[in-house]
């Protein structure tokens, strides 16, 4: 166990990490059960969020509803899509950072509508069709190792990063990392949104490609490798994960690029196959209230939803059918070709 569990976590927690269970077709990363003494009902959650990071939200829900046993399954965002849309796995809540895939689930009719007072607290852009509900707002950040940058100016934006990488090829050769957008749903979302926003993305990708970029599946691995000094820079890392690693203070530095910082909304949907849609609704209310109210401040592990997005360098990704564009097969193939040409030189 890498993280210190919260002190009130007195319940028995079973975690099966990194095991692919054969009973279902989709690949499971971990499975955690949060049992209770006298379970009356059970809530099954499928999620892309790390178990350790997400646990406080589950436990806070169980404190309010002590008779509900919870099963928490983590998967990659593409496997989540597979589980819900292809296999119709009976999960009550699906939580993912891949907004585009969540939107596609809702658009293609794999989710249920849900309306509540709590859901109405969300701003217009924080929900879509009463099917997709956001509860975090997480930046795509640049994470660097301060040691690796000693004697160099810490880059503030992408242009700075390009310059510093170009000028010091020997120092950074093989020591830059980013998502493998071919396998990571979130990485693909960040990359496509970056490409949509600015040409700088392609120039940066080419520079990173020329240095021999390491490709990662997940933010947490990138953070680990930056902290250990294996790589010097990781681009498009989930800022929330980096911020949560208080234990790595000093070993990593988190930079929100000043030219533009893409903001991802972590979202929850209720699949049509949910066995307990009412419980699922309660859980979504709990997520939203935790994100928006003072009461949630003590345990809420993510950056809060900021309703004021007037800061011009913040580029929140908007929910809506536009997200379907880069999921189009032809469009995706085209994008990956360009990306491979840039990154895998």
């Amino acid at each position: 166990m890498r993280f210190t569990l919260f002190p009130f976590l007195g319940l028995l927690v079973t975690t099966i990490a990194s095991v692919s269970l054969a009973f279902e077709g989709f690949q499971i990363e971990s499975f955690t059960s949060y049992p209770v003494d006298k379970p009356v009902r059970q809530l099954k959650i499928i999620s892309t969020a790390d178990t350790e990071l997400f646990a406080p939200l589950v436990l806070a829900f169980q404190q309010k509803n002590p008779q509900i046993a919870i099963e928490y399954t983590t998967v990659s965002s593409s496997q989540l899509m597979q589980a819900i849309s292809v296999e119709g796995a009976p999960f009550d809540v699906a939580i993912s950072s891949a907004m585009d895939l969540q939107t596609k689930l809702a658009n293609d009719g794999f989710t249920r509508a849900y309306r509540s007072d709590a859901a109405n607290l969300l701003p217009e852009w924080g929900r879509w069709r009463d099917h997709v509900f956001s509860f975090t707002q997480e930046p795509a950040a640049i994470v660097i190792s301060p040691d690796a940058f000693s004697g160099l100016q810490i880059p503030k934006n992408r242009q700075d990063l390009i310059t510093v990488l170009r000028n010091n090829p020997n120092r950074f050769k093989g020591r830059v990392g980013t998502y493998d957008v071919r396998s990571s749903g979130l990485g693909y979302l960040f990359a496509t949104q970056d490409a949509r926003t600015s040409e700088t993305y392609w120039r940066l990708s080419e520079v990173m490609g020329s240095l021999g970029t390491q490709l990662y599946c997940c933010s947490s691995d990138m953070i680990e490798d930056v902290a250990s000094g294996k790589i010097a820079v990781a681009y498009n890392v989930l800022g929330s994960y980096a911020l949560a690693r208080k234990d790595l203070a000093g070993k990593i530095e988190i930079i929100a690029p000043a030219d533009f910082t893409t903001l991802m909304l972590r979202t929850a949907v209720i699949p049509t196959n949910a066995q307990n849609p009412d419980l699922a609704g309660d859980f979504i209310d709990h997520l939203i209230l935790s994100a928006l109210t003072e009461a949630g401040a003590s345990y809420y592990p993510f950056p809060k939803l900021v309703t004021d997005t007037s800061a011009t360098f913040l580029r929140p990704i908007r929910l809506g059918p536009g997200l379907l564009v880069f999921l189009d097969d032809l469009k995706r193939r085209r994008f990956l070709q360009e990306w491979e040409a840039a990154v895998l030189q």
Binding site: P321, G322, L324, V325, L330, R334
Partner: peptide
Amino acid sequence: DIPYAALS
């Protein structure tokens, strides 16, 4: 090459 705006 579907433009982003076409669906958004």
